[in-house]
């Protein structure tokens, strides 16, 4: 009987968290809506895992609900801006090509537009500290992206650390800013799983960082196969499960949601 009630409570918690995330996603989508961009570029993907972590961190603060929403909105806008710029193709096109692919051009502008929105929203609430926090995170992320671009890792661990930081810096810096860094270690490891999953899905595509890494083999000792990666992913999942178990019960929504996600992944 008690176990049945517990299960029911978990279902309700999961439903509440899912509803909240949907509400936040809708708010973000409304903010970035632009008729012309919508016509030509793909709809920005809102990273639900980052949204969940941000939401969890902020819900456990005494900030006003207005401020919480603005922090979630602006952090996600920055993430979307950075992700949109990743969609710009790297290869140089033929100079003879007169009418250039509008999609790539608009991805450049859309990313800049979303960045402007983040600054504008935080300026309206006069939160200079948060503007700085996000700007610093963007700066760090781009430094890390350069390392990945030039495949400069000294080891597989080094490469994963870079990836982990690229994925998590925005959230962890915001958590530091609002003095709630308790979930940061977990957030980093959890976000790495999601990124590895994404990268495994992109294998053999021209944008695959893993391909680049495996092809490079480099001057140093990195030698990584797909099965190594899958093994690393499994280990990472176990690591996250351990960390999740240590998170206080007050974070029920997060725990139930992630357990559920991990269940469907494995």
């Amino acid at each position: 009987m008690q176990e049945g009630m517990l299960e029911r409570a978990k279902v309700i918690t999961l439903q509440t968290t899912t509803n909240e995330l949907q509400h936040l996603k809708k708010m973000i989508e409304d903010k970035i809506h632009h008729t012309y961009l919508k016509k030509y570029i793909q709809k920005p993907v809102i990273d639900e895992n980052k949204l969940l972590i941000l939401y969890t961190i902020l819900m456990n603060t005494s900030l006003s609900s207005h401020k919480k929403e603005k922090y979630i909105l602006t952090t996600m806008l920055v993430q979307i801006a950075l992700d949109t710029h990743e969609l710009v193709p790297d290869q140089t096109r033929e100079k003879s090509e007169f009418i250039r692919p509008i999609q790539g051009q608009l991805n450049v502008l859309a990313g800049d537009y979303y960045s402007g929105l983040y600054y504008s929203i935080l300026s309206e609430i006069n939160d200079v500290g948060m503007i700085k926090t996000l700007a610093t995170a963007i700066k760090e992320i781009n430094e890390r992206k350069m390392k990945l671009h030039y495949v400069e890792a000294q080891s597989v661990d080094d490469w994963f650390t870079n990836l982990k930081l690229i994925e998590s810096l925005l959230v962890t810096e915001v958590a530091e800013y609002i003095e709630q860094p308790g979930l940061n270690v977990f957030a980093q490891e959890w976000m790495l799983i999601n990124r590895i999953n994404q990268e495994l899905g992109k294998l053999e595509t021209e944008n695959s960082l893993l391909n680049k890494l495996m092809d490079t083999k480099m001057n140093h000792s990195i030698d990584l196969s797909q099965s190594d990666l899958e093994k690393a992913l499994k280990m990472q999942i176990e690591k996250v499960k351990d960390l999740l178990a240590k998170i206080p019960e007050s974070y029920t929504g997060l725990k139930v949601y992630i357990r559920n996600t991990l269940k469907s992944d494995t």
């Binding site: 193709p89 790297d90 700007a135 610093t136 963007i138 781009n142 350069m146």
Partner: peptide, 13 residues
């Protein structure tokens, strides 16, 4: 393009 995008984002930040 990739480095140009990162550079622009870095400078704006």
């Amino acid at each position: 393009n990739r480095v140009a995008m990162y550079t622009g984002d870095y400078i704006l930040a």
